[in-house]
Nucleic acid binder design. Structure first.
Lengths: 313, 313
DNA sequence: ACAATTTAATTGACAAAAGCAACTATTTTA
DNA sequence: TAAAATAGTTGCTTTTGTCAATTAAATTGT
């Protein structure tokens, strides 16, 4: 409860702060001959491909009469054309004219400039952090029901400072939350990374990291084990991004790499608890070849081995 | 440049999103008999202890005449009293009456409720993430010149899932940015953690982690090395939080722990490049006892040893 | 010391923004 | 097919905000 209060207070501080911030950013709008509401309406018309006046009205939550006048004004100024809908004689859908589009693009220019202005005093990493935080907020606070496609997922295979730590962190946190493996599990992951890093060679081993909104969202790795064998390791997708096909993409990339490197056999170790991952392994052609009861990280579980044979002509 | 465009576009998406979000949150205000601007003015009066009309005017960026009328209206309704300033006969400072405060507190109630509402569908960790992201934004986008005291720094000594990874990540990223130590340095840190974790005992070893806005902001550790000796390790303060005394607090806590555990000697290894840290070590009583030239992590540097003897009666 | 300038706050006149309610023309529902 | 609902329009009103002129006190320059 104590925390909840702090939380709400932080959010209110932000709201007051950002009300002011938006006010500053939108000032240039007032310099133009259009009001904030008018600009917002133009935006909605531009983005929502085929909108009617009601669509705008709902998005902007403004009075119908008010909007009607705004739209008429736009029409008068040649920014907008109304196409009567064939299926409904009352409504018509709205479209910006070339002139309207031109106006918007010049406004965008201004707005972009102002945003760059706002960021000038920040370092690149901090700028990125701003965008990331905003994406996170948009992602978390979106109206439930609207779509989740926020930011793009970006997969990379190089190893940058901070990556190792981040990967270990994600493993530790995720398995703790989902399976109640304690800090001992993170220590185990630490060992596996330590072991791998001692012999890591970018030509033979590869790690894929999927980033979304500046945060590690998933990963997978293929480690060469000699004699045409390779181990698949550290496969992981953050729960809030599951069901979007990211896991499949990661596994596909890993498999493509294995084929390209002509590995003859790929194996992996997991436990019976990671059943969702297991389904993906099997879809990729892996077969369960072993299962031994163990007590690990405070849990009784079956350690399972999966194998995949690859053939080349 | 390509990235810059993505960045600006993300920020604009957020701005449009949050304009709407704030609109929704502020709707209750419209239900009340006061306008948004009026409520904002009341807030400013409440928070900025001793404000004059000009103070409000500057904070809210509104017309002086408009504000004058708003304030007169508040006075008429008994929400506000003006105390003429003794040092300036033109201005007077503004204070809410009991009634004004009561009004604000009931509005706060409403607002808090609405924010909780907004968060209901989120898990606790996600709620925290929302607040953290907002604090980060407020911290990064604040008008340059305003004070930096955002969020509190919170130091803890337990080890939770994800902590090890996070500490390694911070080391990797920071030393890469500040000293251009590459991924090899992170591998070295990985080893040190691995070595420590093999024998980690909470009673003898201790790690302090300073968190600010949900992110690791600094750390220090004391590892028992037997026979009354201890090693100080992993001392770090994020650059954007330096100069606030956090480093000193961390070292003080570590030293207090050493005395409590009756260690007779504390040592640490560092390089000549970490000169800011070295100053803090010496302030705490450490003395440089060795310096050997080495080639480490792609750099020619001197590895230095510092020692501190502790005496007990 | 005192005229000129600046600043804090107020006031009148006015314009822009937004809301309300009545109305028309369709479409949907019962 | 009559009643209800919906999309959009229009006249009228209120609210919100701007501009310029004004007053009174404080500051500045000489």
């Amino acid at each position: 409860m104590e925390q909840e209060i702090q939380l709400v207070s932080d959010i209110r501080k932000f709201n007051r702060f950002y009300t002011r911030q938006l006010g500053l950013l939108q000032q240039h709008v007032f310099d133009s001959e259009y009001s904030l509401t008018e600009v917002r309406a133009l935006y909605e018309i531009m983005f929502n491909g085929q909108t009617t006046a009601t669509g705008i009205r709902e998005a902007l939550q403004i009075d119908a009469g008010y909007l009607s006048r705004i739209l008429r004004n736009f029409e008068k100024k040649g920014l907008l054309i109304k196409h009567p809908l064939p299926e409904d004689g009352r409504a018509s859908y709205l479209q910006l004219t070339a002139r309207g589009k031109k106006l918007m693009s010049s406004m965008n220019e201004l707005s972009n400039h102002q945003i760059r202005e706002m960021l000038t005093s920040l370092e690149p990493a901090q700028k990125q952090k701003v965008a990331d935080s905003m994406n996170v907020l948009r992602y978390l606070l979106h109206a439930p029901g609207s779509d989740h496609t926020i930011g793009q997922v970006h997969i990379r295979t190089d190893l940058r400072p901070g990556d190792i730590g981040e990967m270990i962190r994600l493993h530790g946190q995720l398995y703790a939350r989902e399976y109640q493996y304690g800090i001992a599990f993170e220590q185990y992951v630490l060992e596996t990374f330590q072991e791998c890093m001692q012999s890591y060679q970018p030509e033979k081993d590869r790690i894929w990291q999927a980033y979304c909104n500046g945060e590690l969202a998933g990963m997978i790795a293929i480690l060469s084990r000699g004699r045409g064998r390779a181990q698949l390791r550290w496969f992981l997708v953050r729960p809030d991004l599951r069901g979007l096909g990211l896991g499949k993409v990661l596994i596909n990339q890993a498999m493509a790499f294995c084929r390209q490197r002509k590995f003859r056999e790929v194996y992996l170790l997991t436990t019976h608890q990671q059943d969702k991952a297991a389904r993906l392994y099997m879809k990729a052609g892996f077969v369960k070849t072993g299962s031994t009861a163990q007590h690990l990280w405070g849990h009784d579980l079956y350690e399972e081995k999966y194998e995949l044979k690859l053939h080349y002509r």
